[in-house]
């Protein structure tokens, strides 16, 4: 039981962390974010299901199409819901991205149907048994791929010239703009990357959860909780908070009840914010007078 909970906690936690990194990426470049991150996760799962199960495409082709669509979703959100409100004082982008998300959910419902469906995966056929615990290979695969992707994101930002440019935009948009970095394109890239990560999480999670148009909201909110707990400005904080949240959730669900899982998880966010208003590893922003 114990091992089983750890494995599934790490699997889910890694995905929360991955999706939460998406919030961090756009927040850092533009001080805005896509409140419909969860719907990008849903889009990844639904499109993967439709192409693999529905159309019977080979997995690599389906994956490429799915990820392209997810990144496109990010670009679309940025164009429709974020850019017009970029300089608005009130968080108008918060509401406009939510609007895009509920439209996306409805579109998925019309195309896919309302029912939840199981996504077959070669890694969820036979469980691995260790002692009394049983878990699927997929649950081991997910956190490994998740960690690998996080490392890739880190390398992109720290090793590649374009990643460094995005970092510069995050640090000081004005100076970065003066250095010749195209800010709108940087923001768009951040949104595409952010939705891409969410789409991958959708594909990875699809075999473990049921695929349904409504699956996005709660995953997006939990990932948002993780981003807030870790600190929106701190990628390491978010990765740690992701695994922590996944483990706590898994243990509460295992030992108490699945309903208590949500109560404990979200109460934890409020508690963290009361004690550390800018997240566990986030920096308190300087007050501007």
């Amino acid at each position: 039981m114990y091992l089983q909970l750890v494995v599934s906690g790490l699997a889910l936690g890694s995905m929360y962390g991955l999706v939460a990194l998406g919030y961090h990426i756009t927040w850092a470049t533009s001080r805005t974010m896509n409140f419909s991150q969860g719907h990008a996760v849903m889009a990844g799962a639904v499109i993967a299901y439709a192409t693999v199960v529905g159309l019977g495409w080979p997995f690599p082709l389906a994956l490429a199409v799915t990820l392209g669509a997810a990144a496109g979703f990010g670009v679309l959100i940025e164009r429709v819901a974020v850019r017009p409100f970029f300089r608005a004082t009130s968080p108008a982008w918060l509401l406009s991205t939510i609007a895009c998300g509920i439209i996306a959910e409805n579109v998925a419902m019309l195309a896919f149907g309302k029912d939840a469906r199981a996504f077959p995966s070669p890694f969820t056929r036979t469980p691995i048994l260790v002692g009394g615990a049983g878990f699927y290979p997929q649950e081991l695969l997910v956190p490994l791929v998740g960690l690998g992707l996080m490392a890739l994101v880190h390398a992109f930002y720290h090793r590649t010239p374009y990643g460094k440019q995005l970092k510069a935009v995050a640090f000081d948009p004005e100076a970065a703009g003066l250095m010749g970095i195209h800010i709108p394109r940087a923001v768009m890239t951040a949104y595409a990357l952010s939705a891409l990560l969410a789409g991958i999480a959708g594909v990875l999670l699809a075999p473990l959860l049921n695929v349904a148009p409504t699956m996005g909201t709660i995953i997006g909110l939990k990932a948002f909780a993780v981003a807030i707990i870790g600190g929106l400005d701190s990628a390491p904080g978010i990765v740690i908070a992701g695994f922590g949240y996944g483990l706590i959730e898994s243990f509460v669900a295992g030992y108490v009840s699945t309903g208590a899982r949500e109560i404990v998880g979200f109460a934890l966010v409020i508690a963290v914010l009361v004690v550390r208003p800018w997240g566990l590893l986030g920096d308190k922003p300087a007050r501007r007078v």
């Binding site: 927040w27 974010m33 968080p91 909780a225 929106l232 949500e262 109560i263 979200f266 109460a267 208003p277």
Partner: peptide, 27 residues
């Protein structure tokens, strides 16, 4: 609790509150 923070952090606290209430109603 919520108004010590603003922007997305405030949105988070209010969302979290709503979900906690909803879950308590179910449980």
């Amino acid at each position: 609790a919520a108004l010590r923070v603003s922007g997305p952090y405030l949105a988070m606290v209010t969302i979290a509150f709503g979900i906690i209430v909803e879950s308590v109603l179910v449980e």
